[in-house]
């Protein structure tokens, strides 16, 4: 799978007979990109799966909840004001994701609990609000950098580096392990917050862990590749169709399936109109939006 992903592209590479420039394409451009795509997919799908269980809502998704946009704004702020500090970007992305999560959660929460529509609506409001700030910010940037950013906002893996890959790999690994460890508690949260409380879950702690690590996952993914949307929606949904609702399966399997999904989507993004490229987020949204509508109607 990874082998075919690195060989297919605007320049077709045979993995066994490589010329010198082809080696450069393989090792310096394509390999880090495919590896990064896999990690970004894992991050987003695991964040989506755990947020869905926590919020009792199969439509919760980092992109739709505004979490990705929060991370994007954080990344841009770091890029504009803290350009000299490379490490500031994922940190600011994490902060942005965390703040957006908390704001949406507080908006969606009411005395009567939280319903599907309210959560989605709060997500839309936060997303559009953050988008407008991002647009304001891009007008501060000069034209050459602006083009890069509009592409990046839609989800773009073309700037992949090994450093970005290592960081995302670390986040994906730690995040998946920690969130899988909460899966049994999440099984109860998914049934109902009150049920969870009655049957022994410290819901405040679980909520903190899930919000925190989902923000880490989304933050690192967005800092590396922009907002690739709908991964956290489609992947857990498909996984649940295959293995049921038990989060001890759903969370780790989402990591693997999310990785495969984004690698495939990126392959299409690189080859569909080669030698030019599409943002990978456009491909995932093309698949994801219909799935969202289907899930919304079924609710």
């Amino acid at each position: 799978m990874l082998g075919s992903a690195v060989s297919i592209g605007s320049e077709r590479l045979s993995l066994f007979e490589l010329t010198e420039p082809q080696r450069a394409i393989l090792y310096d451009i394509r390999a880090p990109r495919v590896l990064l795509a896999a990690c970004v997919g894992a991050c987003l799908a695991v964040a989506g799966a755990s947020l869905q269980a926590l919020l009792r809502n199969p439509l919760a998704e980092p992109y739709l909840l505004g979490v990705s946009n929060g991370a994007a704004l954080g990344t841009m702020l770091a890029f504009v004001f803290l350009e000299r500090f490379g490490f500031a970007r994922p940190l600011m992305a994490f902060a942005g994701a965390g703040i957006a999560t908390i704001v949406v959660y507080q908006m969606a929460r009411s005395r009567a609990g939280m319903n599907v529509e309210r959560l989605v609506l709060s997500g839309v409001i936060v997303t559009t609000f953050l988008s407008s700030i991002i647009v304001l910010l891009t007008s501060v940037l000069d034209a050459a950098r602006l083009r890069g950013f509009t592409f990046w906002l839609l989800g773009d893996l073309s700037q992949a580096t090994y450093d970005g890959f290592y960081l995302t790999l670390a986040a994906a690994t730690v995040g998946t392990i920690v969130l899988s460890s909460q899966a049994r508690a999440l099984n109860l949260m998914m049934i109902g917050e009150r049920d969870a409380l009655d049957f022994g879950v410290e819901i405040g702690r679980v909520r903190l862990i899930v919000f925190g690590f989902a923000s880490v996952l989304v933050g690192t993914a967005v800092a590396a590749s922009g907002s690739v949307g709908y991964v956290g929606l489609i992947v857990p949904h498909l996984v649940r169709l295959a293995v049921g609702s038990d989060n001890r399966l759903v969370v780790p399997m989402s990591a693997v399936s999310g990785a495969i999904f984004v690698v495939l989507a990126d392959m299409i993004a690189r080859t569909a109109i080669a030698p030019r490229e599409l943002p990978v987020g456009a491909i995932t949204a093309l698949v994801g939006a219909p799935v969202f509508i289907y899930l919304l109607r079924r609710n």
């Binding site: 269980a53 109860l188 109902g192 009655d198 049921g244």
Partner: peptide, 29 residues
Amino acid sequence: ARNIAVVAQENETKFPVTVLEYVLSGRFA
């Protein structure tokens, strides 16, 4: 939770939880 169990009005879940999974959730504590 190990000492007190609650039977409340069930609220619908949006996820496909099986009856056995639901009952097993009571064994959490």
